[in-house]
Simulated scan of single mutants.
Amino acid sequence: MLVLAAGLVAWDLVVRLNDLPPYVLPGPGLVFRTLVADHGILMNSLLTTLWTTFEGFVAAAIGGIALALLFNQSRWLEISLLPYAIVLQVTPVIAIAPLLLIYLPQQTAVIVCAWIVAFFPVLSNTTLGLNSVDRNLAGLFQLYGASRLQTLRYLKLPAALPHILGGLRIAGGLSLIGAVVAEIAAGSAGAGSGLAYRIAESGYRLNIPRMFAALLLLSAAGIVIYMLLALLSHLLLRRWHESALRKDT
């Protein structure tokens, strides 16, 4: 909090001492007043962006975990499909978004962009967790004649849970990034416009205080998403996993 306060004071001093106009760099006080004055427009846009983020995140979580489970059960399936998942990950979403907007409805294309960005961390972390099971425990399950489904349910999934939750924490922030990039590419106006459009609109109109206010809301949304997923991870792991037990002691 002290560092934040010092940063705000330094920001305000730079603006005042250099007499910078608001269209160059607004002061923190003006940004806060703009956030209050334009809260109706900005909050509606924030809700639109958050809903897109949520849909992309849920799709990435379900798709990534389900595909990782299939990879774990079939080595050939992993060899066949993983390279294409990697290609999807390393291709910039800003380059894919215009194509998706041609072939898909606008809202669907925006959700797909959020899914593309968030999908791979869930897939890779879940796959890593499922493949990192202790060999001795796996041998014990095999010795007692456990089926593949029983081994997956009682050994591999619990062992992979910390990795899955780590992937979800990463995917939460990335889905927000994907939603913002897709909204910028879509560039649609109207009541359903997200925060990314408001930022672009503010830049075109040189309404820099509103741009800063929208950026502040996006940053706050990303922090809240990460904290909620971190809390979920802590609640699920606090009684048995070392990473959570260390925090409690």
Rank of each mutant, 00 (worst) to 15 (best):
T108N: 00
R135V: 11
A185F: 02
I62Y: 13
L155C: 12
Y23K: 01
A68F: 00
V133G: 08
W240L: 02
D19K: 15
V14T: 13
L81S: 12
S219P: 03
Q142P: 01
A114S: 13
W11K: 01
Y154D: 00
L99N: 06
A114Y: 02
C113R: 06
T52A: 10
N131S: 11
P28W: 07
I225S: 03
L35T: 07
V224P: 11
A118E: 00
V58H: 06
L149F: 09
L195V: 14
V224T: 14
G64C: 12
E242R: 13
L215R: 02
Y204N: 07
Q106G: 13
S233M: 10
I225R: 03
A171V: 08
G173A: 06
I86F: 10
A186M: 11
L2G: 10
L46V: 11
A6C: 12
L104H: 04
G29L: 13
L143F: 14
V3Y: 10
P209V: 12
L157A: 08
Y204F: 07
E78Y: 12
L228G: 00
E78D: 14
E242N: 10
G192E: 14
A221H: 06
S124K: 05
L195F: 02
A213V: 02
L81V: 15
L69Q: 04
W115N: 04
G172M: 01
L77K: 00
L228V: 14
P83R: 12
M211N: 06
P209M: 11
A37P: 05
Y197V: 00
A68K: 09
N18L: 14
A59Y: 01
A191N: 12
L81A: 14
Q73D: 11
S45Q: 09
V36R: 13
L235F: 11
P209G: 01
L17I: 11
I184W: 15
G194R: 10
N18M: 13
T126D: 05
G63W: 07
D134C: 09
L215T: 12
T249D: 01
G173F: 03
L235I: 00
A97H: 09
N207P: 06
P83A: 12
L155Y: 07
R135Q: 12
G178F: 00
S175H: 07
T108G: 02
Y154V: 07
S202W: 04
A114P: 08
S219E: 04
I225W: 05
W115R: 01
Q73M: 12
I65W: 08
L42C: 03
L77E: 00
G166D: 00
L235C: 05
E183A: 09
P28E: 02
T91C: 06
V93G: 06
R33I: 03
I116L: 14
M43V: 09
L206W: 04
L99F: 15
V31G: 00
D134A: 10
M211D: 04
I96C: 04
P28H: 02
V31C: 01
P98W: 10
Q150W: 05
L123D: 03
R153G: 07
L218V: 14
A213W: 13
E201F: 08
I65A: 05
I79W: 15
V181W: 02
F212W: 01
P26W: 07
A5F: 12
E183T: 01
Y204D: 00
I79P: 07
V224L: 15
C113G: 12
K247I: 13
A159P: 03
R169Y: 04
P92N: 02
G203S: 13
P98S: 11
V14I: 14
